[in-house]
Simulated assay, not measured.
Amino acid sequence: MKTDLKHTGERLPPLSPLHRRPGLARRRPGPLRELLKLGADVVGGDLNLMPRAAAIAYKGRDECDPRNRWTYVTRKRKIDYLFAGDGRVRRCFLDYARSTWSDHVPLHAWISRR
């Protein structure tokens, strides 16, 4: 199966070649750029990006957990994010007690209304 390496926007099917090549997904911030273009108040999720590749999301936004604590249990690295407009993140925590539910640590954020 051939893969379009300029993938943007759509969610990748679970067994796509980009998922089988983990290093490739961490260097492709295209889907994040597409999310940011939507202008949503809150953007985030399992972005599969290392912190440097997610840097484009910080312009005009605060991250729930900017300390880069790990969110992915299997390899203990940060690949999950929640962003909101500047000054809107009121509280945030990573719920390590519930990390057995998934291979990702739940990330909770309290976001103020504008």
Rank of each mutant, 00 (worst) to 15 (best):
Y72V: 01
R27Y: 02
H108T: 13
W101S: 05
P106M: 03
P51I: 11
D62W: 10
T71R: 02
P31K: 04
F83W: 15
R33P: 06
K6T: 15
D95C: 09
V42S: 03
D103Y: 06
T74M: 06
A53S: 14
V89G: 01
L32Y: 03
S102M: 10
L47D: 04
T74G: 07
L94S: 03
N48P: 06
A97T: 00
P66G: 04
L12C: 10
R52N: 10
T100M: 01
P106K: 00
P66L: 08
V42N: 02
H104P: 05
I111V: 15
P22E: 04
V42R: 02
S112E: 10
T3K: 05
R114G: 11
A55L: 09
S16T: 00
R67A: 14
G45N: 10
S16M: 02
P29E: 07
R69G: 11
P66K: 04
G30E: 14
A84Q: 03
W70P: 09
R90E: 10
D4G: 07
D46E: 13
N48H: 00
R67F: 13
A97V: 02
P14K: 13
A109R: 00
R26F: 14
L15C: 07
A109S: 02
V89E: 00
D4H: 13
G23Y: 06
R75N: 13
D46C: 09
P51T: 09
R52Q: 14
L82R: 01
R28Y: 01
C92W: 06
S99M: 15
P66S: 07
W110H: 06
D62R: 06
D41T: 08
F93C: 06
G9T: 12
P51M: 11
R20D: 06
N48Q: 03
N48G: 03
K37Q: 05
D62M: 08
H104T: 11
M50S: 13
P13R: 13
D95V: 09
R91P: 00
P13C: 07
Y96G: 04
A55M: 08
R28C: 12
D86C: 15
G23V: 04
G85T: 11
C92P: 04
K6V: 15
G85Q: 10
S99C: 12
P17Q: 13
F83K: 11
G30Q: 15
V42T: 03
A25D: 00
T100S: 12
P29Q: 09
R20G: 10
R90W: 00
R27V: 08
L36W: 05
R98P: 02
D65I: 10
L24M: 08
I79H: 05
G30K: 12
Y96E: 09
M1N: 09
T8V: 14
K59Y: 15
E63M: 14
R113Y: 08
A84I: 06
Y96F: 11
L18P: 13
Y72R: 08
V73R: 14
R75A: 14
R91W: 09
T8R: 15
H19E: 00
L32H: 03
P106A: 02
Y81N: 02
K59F: 15
K37A: 05
R77G: 04
A54V: 07
Y58H: 15
P106F: 05
L47T: 02
R75E: 12
R61D: 00
L107M: 13
A109T: 00
K78F: 12
